[in-house]
Nucleic acid binder design. Structure first.
Lengths: 189, 189
DNA sequence: GAAACTTCTTGAACTGGTTCAAGAAATGGA
DNA sequence: TCCATTTCTTGAACCAGTTCAAGAAGTTTC
């Protein structure tokens, strides 16, 4: 819980009353590895803050293969905005990659918090800006780097995270096959 | 000018005083086709709202090929948030795809507007959420569709827009070569 | 209206990565 | 500790898309 308050305070100043209010409203839960918080096709009703662990957004293609679009580690939020904001069936599932501790913020609860503490509009704007920026950069790398380069770039940028996710999942995030990733790691390409 | 006010009012209510204030602060400019508003490597200092026409964010790869990451048509904002928010050199250039009418909002001016009309925090949060959602969906399509499918999907979704952009630019947005797009259109694949 | 420039088309050779199948290695549960 | 399940590895055949070069078609400028 204090991780989120702390995170918020990096971007907006909160007084004691506001902090107490937030602590009274927000609930942290343990989520077991592989638990789905959102299922593709359902309407997404919440945003999720990762206190500890990792979540991911993924979908299953028509061919039946899994593609991971996004990971969220500590201090990141994750949701399907298209579904949450428009109340339409989600294009993604959201799942725990490892045992995690997560704060679930329903759409109604967020509206309530923003009504009560309007300066959190700024917090959430800054949060989504950061996510959007990361997403744009990801598209740049998808366009400009080969599969090998994407893996190398990821390994250099996030060496510790590399150990935390199954290789098939990382491959699906990098948009390469699991077999190809194996060959990259074995130095066979 | 009234397009932007109109657009804002779809998401937040503005009284006459606020509208007059905004009209006094915002300036609309005509931008000639091919004009760059931001150059890769420079620090991005503004957000851009498209009243009429079209802008795009693109970059040049190490191989010298252009890749278009994002288009912004009427009623969309475009910027490089990574650069604007962190004051770091931009990963993208932003350019007019056709003669356009654009409102430029500097970082300072945005801060001033948000200070004076805090409810615009909500407007910008909703705007960025929409952009981020579009970007996530784009990643989904990049992962799950072949080049042919991406073109067909785009042609079905935005038939009029198709006529407004050069084919080589569309190809670079769909992450296929211009020659391949020609062959798709000729029914040769 | 002509010349210069830009955009689009086409065929063929090439290639980066996929797919498949089989089995090894690692992990989890009883 | 053993068995079941999941994850990873490997080689070879295959393919979606790229690249190159040449030229056609369209647009812009003078």
């Amino acid at each position: 819980m204090k991780e989120l308050i702390s995170h918020m305070q990096k971007m907006v100043s909160l007084d004691l009353e506001e902090i107490n209010y937030l602590e009274g409203e927000l609930v942290s839960r343990d989520i077991k590895r592989k638990t789905c918080l959102v299922t593709e096709g359902q309407i997404c009703q919440s945003l999720y803050f990762v206190e500890k662990g990792c979540l991911r957004a993924f979908f299953i293609s028509e061919k039946g293969t899994e593609h991971t679009c996004q990971f969220a580690i500590e201090n990141w939020w994750i949701t399907d905005h298209m579904s949450l904001d428009n109340q339409r069936p989600s294009h993604f599932s959201i799942q725990a990659v490892e045992n995690s501790k997560v704060i679930t913020l329903t759409r109604e609860k967020q509206a309530q918090l923003l009504n009560r503490i309007p300066k959190l509009e700024r917090y959430f704007r800054l949060i989504v800006q950061r996510s959007f920026a990361a997403s744009q950069l990801r598209i740049k790398y998808l366009f400009s780097q080969s599969g090998v380069e994407r893996y190398q770039h990821f390994a250099e940028s996030f060496p510790e995270f590399l150990q935390r996710v199954p290789q098939y999942m990382l491959a699906s995030y990098l948009n390469i096959s699991a077999e190809f990733l194996s060959k990259i790691r074995a130095g066979k390409v």
